[in-house]
């Protein structure tokens, strides 16, 4: 499974949000999208999953354009993990994860569906949560449930929208570790929007840095997370520490950036 994003643009009320994004992502790759607030990371993820309809350009899954796929077939190939889940009427964690089987279920839930849910519950080590109310969970626990749901779709591609943004450091590391393991062990291609440059640096195979709707730099962390790139895109002066071959970023101060 290979994912190609070709010259994707998206405008909201004639405001360009994405301005010609092109990416090629390999199987089993954990790809991080970084960039300041409002540069279109979330929009890019939603366009890839056809949740938003791009103004022009296309996303190809092994050559199939996602906008040509039936919504149900697309749901069997791409899983989406939102940043948070809305509060709603109460359901159990098990039901919340079972929802991920929706593209595969007609009406009846089969043994296979239940087994699939349990497989993901075990993979994410959330057995003791599984019959609790979803609304009562902490942010980190919820994030794991949302990942388990998306994995239940049996997808080839997983899209995550800032999965670590509301979590404490332990849950952040756990989520990143799980994602690394899923991509390597299950051959799933994962794209995540993420704010924490150091987490991206440490766990992602490659990083794409976005700025004003464009991909400014793409590649290995040491090539993308350079002081020059960070100053230009974020307007922040940083110094780097070498953390086993990967850069560890220490922010120093905001600076004026000349356009």
């Amino acid at each position: 499974m290979k994912l190609k994003v070709k010259d994707l643009t998206f405008s909201y009320r004639s405001n360009p949000i994405l301005d010609g994004v092109t990416l090629e992502i390999e199987p089993s790759e954990l790809f991080a999208i970084v960039g300041p607030n409002g540069t279109g990371k979330t929009t890019l993820i939603k366009c890839i999953d056809a949740i938003l309809k791009p103004t022009s350009g296309s996303t190809l899954l092994d050559g199939d354009d996602v906008s040509d796929l039936d919504t149900k077939d697309l749901a069997k190939r791409i899983g989406y993990v939102p940043q948070s889940a809305p509060r709603g009427s109460p359901i159990t964690v098990f039901d919340a994860i079972l929802m991920g089987r929706r593209p595969h279920i007609q009406w009846r839930v089969t043994e296979d569906d239940l087994d699939k849910v349990m497989e993901m519950v075990e993979l994410l080590k959330i057995e003791e949560l599984s019959l609790r109310a979803f609304d009562e969970l902490s942010g980190g626990e919820r994030q794991k449930v949302l990942i388990a749901r998306a994995l239940c779709q049996d997808p080839e591609v997983l899209l995550l929208d800032e999965p670590t943004s509301n979590l404490d450091i332990r849950h952040q590391l756990e989520v990143m570790k799980v994602m690394k393991m899923i991509t390597k062990k299950h051959g799933i291609l994962a794209i995540m929007a993420i704010h924490d440059l150091n987490l991206a640096s440490r766990y992602a195979d490659r990083i794409g840095m976005m700025y004003q709707g464009r991909i400014e730099a793409v590649g290995a962390s040491q090539d993308v997370l350079t002081p020059e790139n960070i100053r230009r895109v974020y307007g922040v002066e940083v110094s780097l520490i070498n953390d086993g071959g990967k850069p560890y970023i220490i922010p120093i101060e905001p600076v004026e950036v000349k356009a």
């Binding site: 989406y80 889940a85 929802m99 991920g100």
Partner: peptide, 17 residues
């Protein structure tokens, strides 16, 4: 199932097909 999925939010529902 569609009504169930709508409870997870429009975007997640769309991603579930």
């Amino acid at each position: 199932w569609d009504f169930n999925a709508l409870g997870t939010g429009d975007e997640t529902a769309k991603s579930l097909g």
